[in-house]
Write a protein that binds this DNA or RNA. Sequence first.
DNA 1: TATGAATGAGTGTTCATTCAT
DNA 2: AATGAATGAACACTCATTCAT
Lengths: 220, 220, 220, 220
Amino acid sequence: MTLEPGEPKFRRRKADRPGEIVDAALRVFAEKGFAAAKLDDIARRAGVSKGALYLYFETKEEIFRAVVDQAIAPNMQVVRAMVAAHPGPLSDLLRLVAERVGGLMETLPVGGVVKMVIAEAGNFPELARVWHDDLVAQILGAMTDAIAAAQGRGEVRPGDPRIYALEIIAPMLVALIWRETFVPSGAQPFDLRAVARQHVETMIEGLKPPKTSKDGEIAP
Amino acid sequence: MTLEPGEPKFRRRKADRPGEIVDAALRVFAEKGFAAAKLDDIARRAGVSKGALYLYFETKEEIFRAVVDQAIAPNMQVVRAMVAAHPGPLSDLLRLVAERVGGLMETLPVGGVVKMVIAEAGNFPELARVWHDDLVAQILGAMTDAIAAAQGRGEVRPGDPRIYALEIIAPMLVALIWRETFVPSGAQPFDLRAVARQHVETMIEGLKPPKTSKDGEIAP
Amino acid sequence: MTLEPGEPKFRRRKADRPGEIVDAALRVFAEKGFAAAKLDDIARRAGVSKGALYLYFETKEEIFRAVVDQAIAPNMQVVRAMVAAHPGPLSDLLRLVAERVGGLMETLPVGGVVKMVIAEAGNFPELARVWHDDLVAQILGAMTDAIAAAQGRGEVRPGDPRIYALEIIAPMLVALIWRETFVPSGAQPFDLRAVARQHVETMIEGLKPPKTSKDGEIAP
Amino acid sequence: MTLEPGEPKFRRRKADRPGEIVDAALRVFAEKGFAAAKLDDIARRAGVSKGALYLYFETKEEIFRAVVDQAIAPNMQVVRAMVAAHPGPLSDLLRLVAERVGGLMETLPVGGVVKMVIAEAGNFPELARVWHDDLVAQILGAMTDAIAAAQGRGEVRPGDPRIYALEIIAPMLVALIWRETFVPSGAQPFDLRAVARQHVETMIEGLKPPKTSKDGEIAP
DNA sequence: TATGAATGAGTGTTCATTCAT
DNA sequence: AATGAATGAACACTCATTCAT
């Protein structure tokens, strides 16, 4: 972004290039999908020539990989945050995560990437695998563990903890996909934060063990 | 599918052809996405020549449209079932719908179509609109109405009924997308029926109005 | 055109078919040119199925040949008429031919065929040869001979009789081509008969030998 | 046209390319006609790849248009020359024009373009219109005016001046078309200059007002 | 004889990739 | 490092031709 003093201004900073390209590519891939995205378009949006792309990436697939890979990193924070917050009652964890995730999703261009991963999983199985192994399964696993632990503490009613994890995450994801898919053609959007907040409360209630036992722990 | 030995080079089955082509196209589009799908491939799977496609459809887009359109019809049953089951307590409705939807999703090739719609909504906005207006918004609307009515009867706690509807549907949808996206590259699948059943119970509990008060707040 | 009594009316008369097809083909070829003409179109205009064309002709080229060949025959009359009228002063011959040709050109679909021959001479050299040898060279030759004879009789000034023949014919031909080429897009047409009449008089004057000699023969 | 040994695979000559392509295209279109001309062929003759054509033209039609349009410009000189030579007796003008046109036609590739315009006027009406309005009608109009003026001066006998203009031009045009159509398959050619010279003299004589009367009838 | 569904080679067009500058 | 003209393989689409009926 900033140029060193004395540097000629038409000299572009090499170090930033790959990042700029990946940013541009993300936008184009998210809009059009992999096959319909044109390198010309990506190059133009990155402000470089088409040939320049090949100075940093070998093929279109490479760029796509870079985009998807790069999108994982920032999201890993979320996972870590979640895992870090592990101890304590589940309800606290859920509220915390909801707030965090709801916010992130409105900031980051996750939507586009999610769309891409869904769309191109068939054509790029390794990518699907990377996303699953490095991101999705981590999140799901962390939550599953937390839920199982809570079940152990009697905080959560019996049931498959992995499915409970899915139940918790799904509405956010669907609201996100909804935004990408239907809102551009006029559908009424969902307020991501509102969804997160309401759903957390629903789940906290829904997960409470049958009231016969002394379930005072969950709702403080 | 298989032809007897001595099979005729030309079959004369005009009436069946469009259906066969759409079936084949669904498989290819779902696998590869719109742009990456080759007409040659669709034709081969439909057991016809490339030229024959053009006897029934004008362009590749037309075929795509036909695939997506056709996928709406059978799913409309779900909506109708839901609307038909309208009266009675919400919990009964949810259990009924869950059973119905869970079963359908394992039978019909909805997954592929859902994937396609998500992936190509940007490139084919009218398709996204059709899907939204004719199918998704109908389901969501029907559920929203049922929930609002239940709230009126004091069966359901306060909260945005449209978000509640989203919360109810989302896990099934995500499990479906999961199957399309991650399972082929080795991820552990979700049992759609199990998800449906467990989530319904969670939601029934989660939606219950606070037991303590005389729930005067909900139905004023 | 007429059906035998007692013949079922949906039974088509086989004998006329080739002619009907050639008629239809002439119209289509004249409109679009050889390559841009579609057999579908020809078949439709001939009132038969596409497959039926192949009962009478082997290929598209064959049909084209038939069209061009068939167009020669009626025009041969003109040549014969001209040759028959041979004796007598040239001016009489010219006036007679002009009237005859002017009339024919407004009746027969010569224009289209001329256009086709010009356009496709490069792609079908034998056709160009047939047209040249059987028709055009005949007419030109007959006229050249008549002019040479008239020169021998002192009726016509010195000069290349073949070029004189060309001079005589050309305006009619150009008026014809003009009609096919520019009139459909709005150009002012030429009245073929008027062109014929005026040009004949011009040529009769123009061909007169220098007045020094006793040139009374031409203008009676 | 010919490249040195060691010729570079990529030449960098953006400025020259469109011209080279149009030249090559003219040859191919003139030979085959629009529909039968293959882009591969044009590209090969232009010494570029098929894809390169699309760097300079949007479609095959565009190339065709460029060819036809471009052919107008150089011919406009003829028109201007004719209009410039306006004053003076008509016979001088005719002799001058004949010389000029006869020479040009043997140099420029007019023949091919004329053929194309005749052949494709039906499929590309705007092109026919452009040719008519910008070129043909101009020439014809200029000549018509000159003749009418000459009639006013008593130099030319009564008669439709537009038809007289046609009579003057036609033999050159037909000789040109003859060259394109019949000569390649063995017909005896016409010497364009000879045709021009002889026809001018014929017309000068043919247009002379009747010598007997004091020609008061013509210019009242 | 006649049909028209079906074929498949052929062509215009696109676009990821290369390379002289 | 950067450009962008050039390439060529790939693909959607067309249409003359075939053949079961």
